[in-house]
Design a protein around this nucleic acid. Structure first.
Lengths: 136, 136
DNA sequence: TTAATTACAGACTTCACATATCCATGATAG
DNA sequence: CTATCATGGATATGTGAAGTCTGTAATTAA
């Protein structure tokens, strides 16, 4: 039971894009260098973020990936759901079992984590990082 | 990213043992029948619970698994840690990275789920189940 | 129009781990 | 002594993560 490396890459890339200028596209080549991951693999991950509507892409020369719309609102949970999917972490006895007490408690615990992730926005971390770079 | 089936088996087995009489051992054969899992595999899982000190085992005739000590205090987290291990869900850049803001936030979110799991005791669910069986 | 650049899609490989199964061994009650 | 029961190790087997490779489509620059 681990978060995938892909989620890690996605979170760091989003953080990077918010710390950099949000208006012009950045190529996957450039984005991949900071994280020691191959461009083709990172591209697969970023395509998931595109399909989730979190970023947009542009083909051709001077193309790349760019933040989109209300990117200040993007939470950890948005990114995790885009990469890992939205299925529950716990598969209990049978597909739909609303009576199982164990299932209910596990869902409740997962919801607690999700609420924390939903209330944490990438932009806030990017600002904190920028701030700590300006001051010592 | 999923909780293992083994965790599911362990939780249900503990629930079953608390609902039944806690003083006499139950064989893995009997325990496995309720969950459609092979006795040999369930045995491997229960051995983890023994090593974690949550239950005790007795070999030989009339042997089996039995609750132990202050079993009323056993939480979901105790069982999950015994089966899945205690490692963090999120591996970030490098082994020890206390400066990474993303890492910090992920640990914090995981802690929120763990706190919920730590505060949920199996015995309470077993009692609720028993109660709902007595009344309609 | 051509060439260079860039994202995208699919097939494929590799590897780690979950999920078992089987059998030998050891402990214990009757 | 024998039947019963847990434990350990070896061994499949399936699944998903992680990553590579290659062709295709889109777009810009020349």
């Amino acid at each position: 039971m681990k978060y995938s490396k892909a989620t890690n890459y996605a979170l760091h890339t989003m953080m990077h894009m918010m710390a950099a200028s949000p208006d012009k596209p950045i190529g996957v080549q450039s984005l991949s260098e900071a994280q020691r991951v191959s461009p083709t693999y990172l591209s697969k991950i970023l395509t998931k973020l595109v399909k989730a509507g979190l970023i947009e892409s542009a083909s051709g020369a001077n193309g790349g990936y760019r933040l989109k719309g209300r990117y200040e609102d993007i939470s950890f949970l948005d990114i995790i759901h885009a990469v890992e999917g939205t299925a529950s972490l716990f598969d209990c006895c049978g597909s739909v079992n609303s009576e199982c007490l164990i299932h209910q408690e596990m869902l409740s615990a997962e919801a607690a984590m999700e609420e924390k992730l939903r209330n944490t926005r990438i932009i806030d971390l990017a600002k904190r990082l920028e701030h700590s770079h300006r001051h010592g």
